[in-house]
Simulated scan of single mutants.
Amino acid sequence: MKKVFLFSIAAIAMASCQKEAKAPAPVSANAKVEANWSSSAQYATWNAGSGYYIENNIWGSGAGFQSIWANSYSNWGVWSDQPNTSGVKSYPNSDYGVHQTFSGLHTVQSSFNVTVPSSGAAAESTYDIWCNNYAYEIMIWENWTGAVNPIAVGYNGNGTPIATYTNVTPTSGGPTYTVYVGSNGTNAVYSFLNNSQTSSGTVNIKDILNFIQSKGVTFTTLDKVQFGFEITSSNGGLNFDCNSYSATVN
Rank of each mutant, 00 (worst) to 15 (best):
A152M: 05
L6R: 10
I12A: 08
E20D: 10
Q82R: 03
S110M: 02
T160L: 08
S172N: 09
W79M: 06
S72C: 07
T101F: 04
V114C: 00
N93P: 07
D207W: 03
L222I: 06
S196R: 04
W130Y: 13
A48G: 08
G159F: 01
S118M: 03
Q226T: 02
S196V: 15
Q82P: 00
G64R: 06
D128P: 06
A70I: 12
N36F: 03
P26L: 01
V4L: 02
Y180Q: 14
F5A: 06
P83F: 09
W141C: 04
V168R: 12
V225K: 06
S80L: 08
Y136I: 15
K3C: 01
V78N: 08
W37P: 03
S86I: 08
Q82M: 14
K89Q: 05
E34R: 12
I162L: 06
S125T: 15
E20H: 02
F5Y: 14
K2Y: 14
Y190I: 06
A35M: 06
N149S: 15
T107K: 13
I58G: 02
Q109Y: 03
I205F: 07
N75G: 04
N184K: 06
T85A: 05
S111N: 13
I129K: 02
C242D: 03
T248A: 12
E20L: 15
G154I: 10
V181L: 05
N132R: 08
N47M: 04
W79Q: 10
G236F: 07
N133I: 07
V168Y: 09
T164S: 10
T221E: 02
S118R: 12
F102K: 02
G174R: 08
A11N: 04
N156E: 08
Q213L: 08
G49P: 10
H106M: 05
A122E: 08
A70R: 13
Y127C: 14
P150T: 14
S183I: 14
V168Q: 15
S246H: 07
Q42H: 06
A247I: 11
S39G: 00
G174C: 05
L222C: 04
A25C: 11
G49K: 09
K22W: 04
G154S: 03
N235Y: 12
Q82L: 04
L209A: 03
V217G: 03
L6V: 13
F219M: 15
Y52I: 13
G77Q: 02
D241T: 12
S199W: 08
A10R: 05
N30H: 12
W79Y: 11
S118Q: 13
N36I: 00
Q197P: 07
K3N: 02
A23W: 00
F229C: 12
G216R: 12
S172I: 03
V148C: 05
S80K: 05
K19E: 14
G62Q: 03
Y155D: 13
V116G: 00
E142Y: 01
S80P: 05
I140E: 01
G228W: 06
V203I: 13
E34A: 12
G216E: 09
W59I: 08
F112N: 11
S103H: 04
S233P: 05
T101K: 15
M139F: 05
V189M: 05
H99G: 09
N143M: 07
N187F: 15
K224L: 14
N56S: 07
S103Q: 09
A123T: 14
I162E: 01
N239M: 10
I205W: 04
N167G: 11
W79I: 07
S111V: 10
V217Y: 12
L222P: 01
